[in-house]
Structure formats: C-alpha cells, structure tokens
Computed example of a mutant assay.
Amino acid sequence: MLPSGAMRHVWVDAQTYLETKVEREGRGTLGQPVTVTIYYRDYQTIEHLQLPAVIETSAGTGQASDRLVIDKVQFNPKLDDGLFARPVVAADRSR
C-alpha cells in the first residue's frame, strides 16, 4: 500500500527477480479512478545493472498505451559547464 492509501501490485519474474509488470490506482483525464499498468521488457545489462529497454504504460481498458524505448544509457557522463550557465537575455529593444 502506498502512503496515499492506494494499492500497488508488482509482478516479479521467478527466475531473474526482475519486475515485469506493475499495476497501481490512478486518475483518468476526467478524474475518474483507473488502473495504470506498466510493463517492463527487454532487460539489458548496463554497467552491471539490469535495466528495461522498453517500458509500456496504459491507463484503463480501451486506452492507447504509451511505449518508451530507451536507446542509450549513460551514468555520470561528462557535461559541459555551459549547460548550466544562465541564458543570455537579449537587451530590451522597446526603448
């Protein structure tokens, strides 16, 4: 049970002990209760960790599912400090 009181069910593969499916209670676009289902597929070993390369999510029956395909995973990549610099704002041209 989650802190909100909602229930979450987790399916685990008996051989790998990896999560294959999760169901939890959620809210639809109109606020109605729906069951959100998440499937974890195509696990790959990346730096000694098992990570799913495909994550599929659906909310409620008859709804289209979303599919996330992860192409590349990097842990602690080198990032240019300029990525975190304050953006340059053009001078006010209304004067």
Results as ranks from 00 to 15, higher is better:
1 M>G: 14
2 L>V: 05
3 P>C: 06
5 G>L: 08
5 G>V: 04
9 H>P: 01
10 V>H: 09
10 V>C: 09
15 Q>I: 02
17 Y>N: 07
18 L>G: 09
21 K>N: 06
21 K>H: 03
22 V>E: 02
22 V>M: 06
28 G>N: 13
28 G>T: 11
29 T>Q: 15
29 T>Y: 05
29 T>C: 08
31 G>H: 11
34 V>D: 14
34 V>F: 08
35 T>P: 14
36 V>D: 08
37 T>G: 04
37 T>M: 05
37 T>P: 06
40 Y>M: 12
42 D>F: 01
42 D>K: 03
44 Q>F: 01
45 T>L: 04
45 T>W: 03
47 E>I: 01
48 H>T: 13
49 L>K: 15
49 L>H: 14
51 L>F: 02
51 L>I: 07
51 L>C: 01
52 P>Q: 06
53 A>R: 01
54 V>H: 01
55 I>V: 15
55 I>G: 10
57 T>M: 03
58 S>G: 09
59 A>C: 06
60 G>A: 10
61 T>M: 14
62 G>P: 00
62 G>C: 02
63 Q>W: 01
64 A>S: 13
64 A>E: 15
67 R>L: 11
67 R>N: 10
69 V>K: 13
70 I>L: 08
71 D>W: 01
71 D>N: 08
71 D>F: 00
72 K>P: 11
74 Q>P: 06
75 F>G: 11
80 D>M: 05
80 D>H: 10
81 D>T: 00
82 G>R: 11
82 G>P: 04
83 L>Y: 14
84 F>I: 06
85 A>I: 03
87 P>K: 10
88 V>S: 11
90 A>T: 05
91 A>G: 09
93 R>S: 13
95 R>D: 12
